[in-house]
């Protein structure tokens, strides 16, 4: 207990710093939000055309989604992916390596991994307070208020509870993947390309570009990848499209992924610091 308290005292300032640095770019957050929503707006026209052209018309159910559900899925998905896109552990590691500051940080009595994790958790917490909670309340308020999402109060509270659990797990997975990409930067400095591949995987396997239900059997396989926890699983959970026994299984799978990725990160870091060369001056 004492050591947890001691660790929190040591690392919470990093979380606060993460929050402050995110707050410094308020205009940028607002701009990214606008970009995300214009993007979803245009994607919805494509979905509208698809439903309009399906044999059953606008009231069709395609791959388990009515048009209204698809609208809600896309909006929630873009909101959630927006938050998962913030925080930049990979970029921070890249900067550490490029500027040689990695040498300084390694000499300090703080864990390199935990330093980055807490910085990211600060950013994530702020994004939840500023983006997810207010926007989610408005979106789901409208959908439930107008009867577009039919769900009882008790079931919705339970869905929100599991959504929050998945959000925390998603935060840990997201940062673990970011750190993994950061470890790759020790071997190649092309962060832009690596990040692009990561974003594509995250969008595609996470069901941001299209729900995994559209991918048939492959979609079921993809729903167990770590990327699914960065979008598809939390979004479907809050929409009430995942049954509770599956939710419990998903929670264990998410925990297993965190363990596996962190283990890989640990091994990669041990290898990376053996070969790192920093310019003297």
């Amino acid at each position: 207990m004492k050591s947890i308290k001691k660790n929190l005292r040591l690392y919470l300032p990093f979380a606060r710093a993460g929050m402050k640095s995110e707050l410094a770019y308020k205009a940028q957050i607002a701009m990214w939000m606008i970009i995300s929503f214009v993007e979803v707006f245009f994607v919805l026209f494509l979905y509208e055309a698809i439903y309009r052209n399906s044999p059953g018309g606008m009231s069709s159910v395609i791959n388990g989604f009515t048009f209204t559900e698809m609208v809600l899925y896309m909006i929630t998905s873009f909101m959630f992916s927006f938050v998962m896109g913030s925080g930049d552990t990979a970029y921070n590691i890249y900067t550490d390596i490029k500027e040689g500051t990695v040498a300084n940080t390694l000499t300090k009595p703080v864990s390199y991994r935990l330093r980055h994790l807490f910085t990211y958790l600060g950013v994530l917490a702020l994004d939840y307070v500023v983006v997810v909670i207010p926007l989610g309340t408005v979106i789901y308020g409208i959908f439930i208020g107008f009867g577009l999402l039919k769900v009882s109060a008790g079931a919705f509270i339970l869905n929100v509870f599991f959504f929050l659990i998945f959000s925390i797990l998603a935060g840990f997975i997201n940062d673990a993947i970011g750190y993994f990409v950061g470890m790759l930067v020790f071997h190649t400095d092309h962060l832009f390309g690596l990040n692009m591949m990561r974003n594509t995987l995250q969008s595609f396997l996470g069901g941001k570009m299209i729900p995994l239900a559209y991918m048939g059997a492959l979609g079921i396989v993809f729903s167990y990848t770590p990327f699914a926890f960065l979008n598809s699983v939390p979004v479907l959970t809050i929409m009430g499209k995942v049954d509770y026994s599956t939710i419990i299984i998903y929670i264990f799978i998410a925990l297993a992924w965190i363990f596996v990725i962190e283990l890989a990160n640990h091994l990669m870091f041990k290898r990376a610091i053996k070969q790192i060369t920093v310019q003297g001056g």
Binding site: T188, D189, G193, M196, M197, N199, T200, F204
Partner: peptide, 15 residues
């Protein structure tokens, strides 16, 4: 780096 970049863009577009 060039190869990673080309693959990254190709990958994104294929997705």
């Amino acid at each position: 780096n060039v190869i990673i970049g080309i693959i990254a863009f190709l990958f994104g577009e294929v997705a």
